[in-house]
Amino acid sequence: MLEIFARLATLVVHDLIGLEAGTGLGDAAHFFVEDTLKILFLLAVLIYLIALVRASLNVERVRAFLAGKAQILGYLLGSTFGAVTPFCSCSSVPLFIGFASARIPVGVTMAFLITSPMINEVAVVLLWGLLGWELTLIYIAVGFLVGMLGGAFLDAIRAERYLQPFLAQAYQQGSAAAAGGGEAQRLTLRQRHDFARKEVGEIFGRVWKWVLIGVALGAALHGFVPDGWIEENLGAGHWWQVPAAVLVGIPLYTNITGVVPVMESLILKGLPIGTTLAFCMSTVAASFPEFVLLKQVMLWRLLAILFALLLVAFTLSGWLLNLVEPWLTTGAGAGG
């Protein structure tokens, strides 16, 4: 079904505008038109459908559900809710406060916060559409593991000691432990439709520029970086490349919707899968603006631990994936 966008791009770029296939500019333009159309289409349809289903889920319900759960289950649930709840980094602070004051362990909250930007329905569908199911599953597995193990680690070192004092106190007292708000609302189809329409508008308004930037970057890589250059210079075999990619990626910020086309392009050009995933996940999962926000609820010490934790986690994942890459059936161009 999605081939229609490739054909549409061929029609527009090669036939109408007259840029030739096989030239840098022609290939870049084709990539840009195809991916932009495909992504925007997928986004609109999917956000709408998923919002219909999700209309009655809100953070208060998630909190009521997470409160008092045993820890192992807590990390899994934290990551799962992180994956299914839409998330914008500007809501991480109120969410953190709300969870902490209900005595939800910091690790469970962090499992939620780490997984949330990395995995969501939009990411899954884009990855599937552009890169194939195998990479999609790997991506999801890594996202979950990093979130859950990261959360468990933070609890193991008793990270709640490094919250800002007002919040550490609230956590101790569990001031909102008995807070309500856990009831499901009964919604009519009409209300669900209204909610879904609003969601589409809102998410679209937030991510379209990331899509354009991401696709433009991907297109530029695709059209103008010579074939083989990346493989020769950044190919497997240099152990330091993965941590370097993560170090560069963490302070950079993009939305997952913007990063998938870049991933597609990098993999097509022969960058090892582990290095690509490690770089892209680190740009999505963490950023300077988010750290600045989290400073409101955490002491520097905890922020530094979190930074180090993500660096180590993504580096290990990248190395591991580069090691097993020869055994993967889909690699470059799986979905292209």
Binding site: N58, V59, P94, L95, I97, L167, A176
Partner: peptide, 13 residues
């Protein structure tokens, strides 16, 4: 301020 959010028990802004 985050304290204000906590005071009113607000989790989404």
């Amino acid at each position: 301020s985050p304290e204000a959010l906590m005071q009113y028990g607000v989790m989404s802004t």
